[in-house]
């Protein structure tokens, strides 16, 4: 149900943008909505992070995934069980950049010699491919928002297109992004476990991103738009001198509208894992809680059963067994 709902939602969004351009609302779809979406994105993002920040981390609860630092002759697993800030940074870098935890994923395989645990890296591979390519695609789009285009953006473009296939040359990341997003979607549909846990909120961003990638690819290779005019528009946005040149095809406005929706939707959805991954107390704390005291700002005052109360209750039996007592 969630899947159908999300698919329809994205189709409706595409239709809205298409109809919008047919009605010559390009000012709305080319300027007003993108600005608004970006504003919502930034404000919502900040608000959410601050909201998280307002809750303290009362206890020191890293999940340790390797040998602790203890005796000097025992080899510590520094990245999976960090004990210093530097090691935590290392762990976080592995987590954020290489998806260390997903890399651990395991599944059993049945062999003739008996069952063995094997690694199961498809989710890791799909996830990493999806995120890395999405990031590169995002960065590549800076060519529409900078003038002159910085050399490193051009270089990224060249690296991305270095197989030099097709005209204009095919960008690997675009294709991989689409493929990876499709994999993640199919996995949600056909893996019975994942299908069971999936909500509309899981399908919607996937459909949205697939829609964005598809319109982007269509625009680059098939339904061309005048790229110079597109850049006129985007540069207008970046310099706060918004203009909407005539003659940019609907496909561009659909692309832009879907992106706007993604931006606006971002802070209110699971996509906030982008910020959340940095703040997860099971990952971003050093496992040094016995060496350095962690402070709980709301450490509660609690009612205790003191030794005195205890001895008062059991003094006689303690004495009879020769256990020392405070008061005779």
């Amino acid at each position: 149900m969630g899947m159908i709902f999300s698919l329809i939602a994205v189709i409706v969004l595409v239709a809205v943008a298409f109809v919008g351009t047919q009605l010559h609302l390009s000012g709305l779809f080319g300027v007003a909505i993108p600005y608004l979406a970006f504003l919502v994105f930034i404000a919502g993002f900040v608000r959410k992070v601050i909201k998280w920040g307002q809750s303290p981390v009362p206890f020191h609860i890293p999940t340790t995934c390797g040998q602790q630092k203890s005796l000097p002759w025992i080899k510590q697993s520094k990245l999976d069980n960090p004990s210093t800030t530097l090691q935590v940074i290392g762990r976080m870098a592995l987590e954020v950049l290489l998806f260390r935890s997903l890399f651990r994923n395991i599944k059993t395989h049945r062999t003739d010699g008996g069952p063995v645990y094997g690694s199961n890296k498809w989710l890791w591979l799909g996830g990493l491919a999806f995120h890395v390519t999405f990031f590169v695609v995002f960065i590549r789009h800076l060519r529409f928002f900078t003038e002159p285009v910085p050399a490193w953006v051009n270089m990224l473009d060249a690296v991305d297109g270095f197989v030099q296939v097709g005209v204009p040359h095919m960008l690997i990341t675009g294709v991989v992004l689409l493929a990876a997003a499709t994999y993640l979607l199919l996995r949600r549909i056909f893996n019975s476990q994942v299908q069971y846990i999936s909500l509309a909120a899981d399908y919607f961003p996937l459909f949205l991103i697939i829609g964005i990638a598809l319109t982007g690819i269509l625009m680059r290779y098939f339904i061309k738009v005048d790229i110079v005019k597109v850049k006129e528009l985007t540069m207008g946005l970046a310099t706060f001198k918004a203009t909407v040149p005539d003659g940019i095809g609907s496909i561009f406005f659909i692309h832009l509208f879907l992106i706007s929706v993604l931006f606006a939707y971002f802070p209110f959805s699971k996509l906030m894992h982008l910020a959340g991954v940095f703040m997860s107390p099971t990952r971003n704390l050093a496992n040094n809680s016995r060496a350095v005291r962690h402070i709980n700002p709301w450490n509660p005052k609690v009612h205790l059963h003191t030794y005195e109360e205890y001895e008062d209750e059991f003094r006689e039996v303690m004495k009879s067994e020769g256990i020392p007592v405070e008061k005779e």
């Binding site: 959410k48 909201k51 998280w52 920040g53 307002q54 809750s55 303290p56 981390v57 009362p58 609860i61 935890s101 997903l102 994923n105 989710l123 996830g127 893996n191 476990q193 994942v194 846990i197 999936s198 909500l199 899981d202 699971k270 906030m272 894992h273 959340g276 991954v277 703040m279 997860s280 107390p281 099971t282 709301w298």
Partner: peptide
């Protein structure tokens, strides 16, 4: 309000199924 872990874990799960 008291546990960042709680608020965060309520918000950021993407239901990837790795834990399932």
């Amino acid at each position: 309000k008291k546990f960042r872990s709680f608020r965060l874990f309520m918000d950021i799960c993407v239901r990837c199924g790795a834990c399932a």
